[in-house]
């Protein structure tokens, strides 16, 4: 990916890269744990996505700032330190501003530390690129994650509870399985297939090989 620094940087491409070509969940199949664990209601899914968007952007920024000072041999521990620092920020702000949601999913917010997608972007992109492209890459990846979690939790809450964001929408008997873990696997699998089908048929984005 280092050619971005040499040639003129296409910021739009950097943004869409994270959303479509290298969508963390639908394309790379990374960070599937939160995609199943927190997506049983739309609100949780969106909040989680926003938290990841924030952490991803800030981590990419910080790593990119520090990229010339990090010794390659100890880069992973340093990435982890930076990530956990920003996760703590996200965690505490959420505890302060969204108390109710935090009670339900606080544990998962702390688990962002261990998300493969965030460490992967720090290692593959931010540590090799300048600040602005790194930030755009972080926003793109975060938006892709937010998009995936929103879609999954939209369908799961609609089918499993007949509601959206806690408000009842349809009045039929809900499919209970969709808000249970088994339904999470089903939803992720089916949506992943659908996303890749649409991509293959209409968007035709090439899979990027590093």
């Amino acid at each position: 990916m280092s050619q971005h620094t040499a040639t003129k940087i296409n910021y739009l491409e950097l943004l869409t890269n994270g959303i479509i070509k290298e969508n963390a969940i639908f394309k790379l199949a990374l960070s599937l744990c939160p995609a199943i664990a927190v997506t049983n209601s739309l609100r949780n899914g969106v909040l989680m996505g926003v938290a990841v968007l924030f952490v991803q952007t800030m981590v990419n920024l910080t790593i990119s700032l520090m990229r010339n000072f990090i010794h390659p041999r100890i880069r992973l521990p340093i990435f982890m330190l930076v990530i956990s620092g920003w996760v703590t920020v996200a965690d505490m702000s959420m505890a302060a501003f969204a108390r109710e949601a935090y009670k339900q999913m606080g544990l998962y917010i702390q688990l962002i530390v261990a998300f493969a997608s965030i460490l992967a972007r720090a290692e593959m992109f931010a540590s090799k690129n300048k600040i602005t492209p790194s930030m755009f890459d972080g926003i793109g990846m975060g938006l892709g994650f937010l998009f995936a979690l929103t879609t999954i939790s939209f369908f799961r809450e609609l089918l499993g509870r007949g509601a959206l964001w806690g408000f009842p929408i349809v009045n039929t008997k809900p499919l209970l399985i969709m808000i249970l873990p088994a339904g999470g696997f089903l939803a992720v699998g089916v949506l992943m297939a659908l996303f890749n089908w649409i991509d293959k048929k209409y968007l035709k984005s090439k899979t990027v090989t590093h």
């Binding site: 008997k173 499919l175 209970l176 399985i177 969709m178 249970l180 088994a182």
Partner: peptide, 10 residues
């Protein structure tokens, strides 16, 4: 199995 988990009562 899908039905049994979705509609345990019915």
């Amino acid at each position: 199995a899908f039905l049994l988990i979705s509609f345990p009562k019915l």
